[in-house]
């Protein structure tokens, strides 16, 4: 008996040893980032681990560096000035743009995903399976292929307001394309095959009995969707929103391509230019990286259950 106990304790120890080394491997770069962001320039060149004295000023310097070497000011009399390049603070603007882009995309994805997911999961119409398979196949298309055509579309498409203005022959109406607008940052991303797939899987998991009961009561599909399915769908809505928001937050290539002015750029593009500008000033770019990572990590820590649940759902029923 005692030997068995010893054996199981040893196994436990072994399991923990592997898991802890795994966790260290995962966390170590983050620890290194935060510690590095607090070092002096001299310390970063020596491969130091712990800074002798934390240089919190690195964060201020990084924010100023992002702002074109000009200190950030907040004027309580004109709070919105903080979003302008001349009077404000670019990092605030970058975060603001990311929020607009993220929230807009999330709203779109939830709408299109719910509707299409429901149609694919619960309705009968000719071509349903073929259409769905076709959509899944588009997931295999390398992004480089659609990049140029989509960029060209951004140049072609008029913004709705400028289009209406020119159509109505309003004075000063000038056609304006989607480059440097939130349209370009949001609209191409408001429907993704992945989230349609997520919604479809979830809706297929709703018991048929509920559906049959509603049908007997004379409920139509739209009634059923609104009053039965949606209230049950909190998990898939939250998950899909989170994963979409995460994608927006971390987007780089597309925003870089379709924005020219710094005022329209999201935070990752801002970080990217800080990294190019900071050059060898490692402590500054690590401070910048920390600032952009912290909000998403906090969001994740609070809502991690939903991240995990959503990703798992795809796996199980996939």
């Amino acid at each position: 008996m005692n030997r068995d106990k010893l054996k199981s304790q040893l196994t436990n120890l072994g399991i923990h040893a592997i898991l802890i080394s795994g966790a260290l491997f995962m966390v170590f770069p983050f620890a290194w980032m935060i510690l590095g962001s607090l070092q002096t320039f001299h310390e970063t060149t020596l491969g130091t681990f712990l800074p002798e004295q934390p240089m919190w000023s690195n964060y201020y310097d990084a924010i100023v560096a992002m702002n074109g070497a000009k200190p950030c000011v907040f004027d309580p009399a004109a709070p919105l000035d903080i979003l302008t390049r001349e009077k404000g603070c670019m990092i605030v603007r970058y975060f603001f743009n990311t929020m607009v882009m993220g929230l807009g995309t999330v709203l779109g994805v939830l709408t299109t995903g719910t509707l299409a997911g429901y149609a694919f999961a619960r309705m009968n119409f000719p071509g349903r399976e073929t259409l769905f398979k076709l959509l899944l196949a588009t997931m295999m298309i390398p992004g480089e292929l659609t990049l140029i055509p989509n960029y060209v579309f951004m140049v072609w498409f008029p913004t709705p307001e400028s289009w209406i203005a020119t159509a109505l022959n309003l004075p000063n109406a000038e056609p304006h394309n989607w480059i440097d607008t939130y349209y370009a940052l949001i609209i191409p991303w408001i429907a993704t095959v992945f989230s349609i797939f997520l919604f479809r899987q979830f809706f297929r998991g709703i018991p048929n009995e509920l559906f049959d009961a509603a049908l007997l009561d004379g409920a139509t599909h739209s009634r059923f969707l609104i009053s039965v399915v949606l209230p049950l769908s909190k998990p898939v809505l939250i998950t899909s929103a989170l994963l979409t928001f995460l994608g927006s937050w971390n987007a780089l290539m597309w925003p870089m391509l379709v924005t020219n002015s710094p005022e329209m750029r999201p935070i990752q593009v801002g970080l990217r230019s800080l990294i190019t500008e900071a050059g060898t000033q490692t402590q500054l770019l690590l401070a910048g990286a920390t600032v952009t990572i912290i909000p998403i990590i906090i969001l994740y820590l609070f809502l991690q259950r939903w991240f995990v649940e959503g990703i798992s759902n795809v796996g199980i029923r996939g």
């Binding site: 770069p29 983050f30 290194w32 980032m33 590095g36 995460l246 937050w249 971390n250 780089l252 990752q268 970080l271 990217r272 990294i275 770019l285 690590l286 990286a289 952009t292 990572i293 998403i296 990590i297 994740y300 991240f307």
Partner: peptide, 10 residues
């Protein structure tokens, strides 16, 4: 969940 830009820099 960490952005590519940031993690690549680290």
């Amino acid at each position: 969940i960490t952005s590519t830009v940031a993690s690549a820099a680290i």
